[in-house]
Design a protein around this nucleic acid. Structure first.
Lengths: 160, 160
DNA sequence: ACTTTGATGTTGCGCTGCAGCAAAAAGCGC
DNA sequence: GCGCTTTTTGCTGCAGCGCAACATCAAAGT
């Protein structure tokens, strides 16, 4: 059953962020990948926002703590986080969001992007996956982890 | 029935391009929009390639004919062509392709992007549209002309 | 201790995309 | 045709995005 999670504007950021960090730590430990301070800071920044952030926006927010990191530093951290499925890139926005959900790697991800408040809901769509697979097969096309981005207006903004 | 068109590597570029140009002319005439030389050149360049081209790549190819146009010139032409549904932007590539197909405006478009040869197949997926609509409704999300981009390997490259 | 691997820092650069203003061209009423 | 408005184009400049190439430094293995 496809289901999207749009975090309510007033939900408990703190707890969902710490859950995600804990998950990241477990996952990295399991893969013996290193969740270094820089990488952790970047992830935390994204988690604290719950909105897509551009790389340079992340830099700005990190600048408060330590010295301002170079762009490449942030990009490398993002590469690492993406490789490990902790962060997604929103192509249509040139921005990044922390992944709140644990996926099967093969499952397609659907991003619902609110044009009003900028929030991003992450849905996993079984039905969509099936339809996509059918369509690709008809075209003789072998897909690779499809990502779907849909712009629109989220439920919370809709109510006004 | 979803169906993707991957032009065979040896198909007749010339004829499909001129068909598309003719369509563009008819459409612009009907809307009393002006298909100026610059805009036409940009469209022709995209049609001649059948692959996504970056804005600066388009500039390079236009440079041969007249003088090299400024970036903004190309972007404005692209804006015009996109507004009229003659060109699509491939977000994940920061590139543009000529639209070979006449859509209903509301129908979602599915791009199948070959990572090997760079070709782009354009499919329209009724089943996918339905699944997406269901998923969005479940999330209380109001979508706006969804565009789906899927990376993978096309049928022609697959055969090798 | 030494080597190998991986992470970070530094410099520099090319691509992407557009704002803001000025000049030229097209359409329109008279 | 003549002025007027609207559209299109040309020009300068700039900000964000993303990474290559190289040097440095820490960690992990033998």
């Amino acid at each position: 059953m496809p289901q999207a999670i749009f975090p309510a504007p007033d939900h408990d950021h703190g707890s969902c962020a710490s859950t995600a960090i804990a998950h990241a730590e477990r996952l990295c430990a399991a893969r013996s990948a290193r969740l270094t301070p820089t990488r952790r800071h970047v992830l935390e920044t994204l988690l604290a926002s719950h909105k897509p952030l551009g790389a340079y926006e992340i830099m700005d927010r990190l600048a408060a703590g330590d010295g301002r990191p170079a762009p490449i530093t942030v990009y490398r951290a993002l590469d690492f986080l993406r490789d490990n499925g902790l962060v997604h890139r929103i192509e249509s926005r040139n921005a990044f969001v922390a992944c709140v959900r644990e996926h099967a790697d093969s499952a397609p991800v659907v991003f619902l992007i609110c044009e009003h408040c900028g929030a991003v809901g992450e849905a996993t769509g079984g039905a969509i996956a099936d339809a996509l697979a059918t369509s690709c097969r008809a075209a003789g096309f072998s897909p690779k982890s499809p990502v779907i981005e849909i712009a629109g207006v989220c439920s919370h903004c809709r109510q006004r």
